[in-house]
Design a binder for these strands. Structure first.
Lengths: 199, 199
DNA sequence: CCAGGTAGTCAACAACGGTTGATATAGATC
DNA sequence: GATCTATATCAACCGTTGTTGACTACCTGG
């Protein structure tokens, strides 16, 4: 998942800037991420960062698309889509400070930045909700969107808000819950009934 | 849900500032919300806004607590907790531009602002996850947290990201899905199995 | 009438952060 | 060697925004 971390003999400066940007945007919100920081990560001048990508927004957009390949996860998921997604969400504390960037990291960091919103909505539909919905049988885009929202919500509570209750993975209990929730959403056919109280 | 919108003959300016702040924070992110805007909403000077609340962060904190009374919703929910929550999430387009502020509005707008995070985590635990978990039978704090994360995720996708697939409420289908998902999470006992594929 | 606190204004600071234009350096091409 | 382009730097601009301190207006109690 780490993007081209071993710089080729000739890793163009532009690429190195992009790498640094990905990392920054994955750990801080859009506003918190300053071009000057990215620049000094790479060891170049701010002006060059700007010039290379045209604007902060453009850089953000490129960083966003560069991150994920969500479909790769889905491809390797086999028929246990729910399990794969759940694992992807929970497995992470291990490589906490590594230079790894998980699919939704950038999204959840900037969910509320108006300046980043437009870029992200398109991205989410094309690169996340799309693939998931394709994985589901029929044209279940809404279910895919719901699942994605669930994933984003949980990720945010875990990694941004850092709500303790969603961080301890004692005995994989949490992961199991998430997996089952997703599985349930996948299987939702406006027929099944499982909960406690009747509507 | 609108906070004391009919200003008493003597609605102290401080209160009016707080009201304006609530509204701003519920519609824009922490960074986007400028003290100067709030000030001009009320018709006072920025300096006074600052002086009244000590700092932007303090103002945010007060706005946050002033908003919700989540437990009120839960109290009126009867035994259909899932239904009540789902309705709360989806019912909203109607009074879109009204001066109404829904429970999670402020939270989902600033989910990723580092400066707002600490304030919010405490708030979420005390005023949202807490009440929900109390409503559940046993000490199911984790399930409550999961449900809350789900609610936040869906709300964000609806109102901040504005993902179309989660906005159309044709025939209440979406609301039903959400209700069932929550109901399922409530009923989760690491036993039930409902989805398509086996783990 | 005066002291004193409350409610509020005004101007300015200080720091930040994206953006810009003019300039330097170096390698390739002719 | 002269020129041209890609790569990069430097300094400065310009708007924004939270914050501060000094100052004004007003009402109240003595």
């Amino acid at each position: 998942m780490a993007r081209k971390s071993a710089p080729q003999p000739t890793a163009s400066t532009r690429d190195r800037i992009l790498d640094a940007a990905v990392l920054r945007f994955a750990r801080h919100s859009y506003e918190e991420t300053k071009l000057r920081d990215i620049a000094s990560d790479v060891g170049v001048d701010v002006a060059y960062v700007h010039r290379c990508f045209g604007s902060k927004q453009h850089l953000f957009a490129e960083a966003l698309t560069a991150t994920t390949q969500f479909d790769r996860i889905l491809a390797s998921a086999g028929d246990d889509l729910a399990g794969a997604l759940a694992r992807k969400i929970v497995t992470r504390n291990a490589a906490a400070n590594a230079n790894e960037v998980e699919p939704l990291d950038i999204v959840i960091r900037s969910l509320c930045s108006a300046e980043a919103t437009d870029v992200m909505r398109k991205f989410m539909l094309r690169d996340v909700i799309g693939p998931i919905s394709r994985k589901l049988d029929d044209s279940a885009t809404r279910r895919a969107a719901l699942i994605t929202a669930f994933l984003a919500g949980v990720s945010t509570f875990r990694n941004v808000l850092r709500v303790e209750e969603l961080r301890q993975a004692k005995g994989g209990e949490l992961e199991k819950m998430i997996a089952k929730a997703i599985k349930w959403m996948i299987g939702e056919d406006t027929t099944a009934e499982t909960g406690l109280s009747a509507t």
